[in-house]
Simulated assay, not measured.
Amino acid sequence: MAEAPHTQRKLHRTALACAGIAVGMVGLAYASVPLYDLFCKVTGFDGTPITRVSNDSDVLDRTISVRFDANVAPGLKWRFSPEKPEITVKLGETTTVYYKVTNTGDQPATGIATYNVQPDLAGTYFSKLECFCFTEQTLQPGESLESAVVFYVDPRLAQDSDVKDLSSITLSYTYFPSKAGKPVAEATSSTQQTVQ
């Protein structure tokens, strides 16, 4: 009879351990998106440009072409384009480029821009000092807005064997309809995760 309480305690501990593991896995699932986003922003992984406060780099004579891509997701009646489709910059040189967005619809619309850099490995070396990305914008019908991107390409790119021969980088922005400060697709998935 003494074995029954001992067995019950073992089963109780096992059940608690399994419940703890399940709760931990659910917590990690919810934390994975913000943690991955933070990891990408800090390391430049997956083409995510690094945000910096200032540029204290030396300017090299080596140049690289930077192409600017502008897209608008379905559901947002906006026209979006860079001031110039491509420029050539020196590594380490701080540069400002402007984008223009216009609401071509007949209703006020709110959008938010996301971005990435291609090729992915160049994201580590593309440093933004100022950007309009992840800032919700509401435009009235026919209204236009000009926004700046201030950036530099880190001169350390010339020392990285994986990208040192790179001749061009593409900075790509996409405006999405926005709800509650997030692109609609993200806002929808966050709501679904909360409901589940």
Rank of each mutant, 00 (worst) to 15 (best):
T14R: 14
R62I: 04
T96A: 10
Y99M: 02
T88L: 10
T51G: 09
A29R: 11
P82T: 10
I87F: 09
P183V: 01
L28R: 04
A185I: 07
S167R: 13
Y36P: 01
Q159N: 15
S65T: 05
G44F: 04
L38C: 06
D69K: 11
Q196L: 15
D58M: 08
L28P: 01
I112Q: 02
T51W: 09
C133E: 13
G181T: 12
S189I: 15
F151P: 02
D165G: 11
A148P: 15
R13Y: 06
D106S: 12
K128G: 06
A31W: 11
Y36R: 14
T63S: 09
G20H: 04
A15F: 10
L166H: 08
P119T: 12
K41L: 10
K90G: 00
Q192A: 14
S32D: 12
P177C: 07
N103K: 08
P155I: 01
G20P: 02
A17G: 08
V149K: 00
G181Q: 11
N116F: 13
T94I: 01
Q118G: 07
D120T: 07
R13G: 01
G47F: 05
I112D: 02
A148N: 09
G20R: 01
D61N: 11
T124S: 04
Y125L: 03
V195T: 11
C18Y: 04
T95V: 10
L157Y: 03
A31Y: 11
T7I: 15
T194V: 12
Y99E: 01
D56G: 13
A17E: 08
G92A: 01
S57M: 10
L76M: 05
Q118E: 12
S190C: 09
G111L: 00
V26Y: 07
T51E: 12
D61E: 12
A29T: 09
T135L: 12
A2Y: 02
I112Y: 06
P5M: 02
P141G: 07
Y173A: 02
G105I: 05
V149I: 15
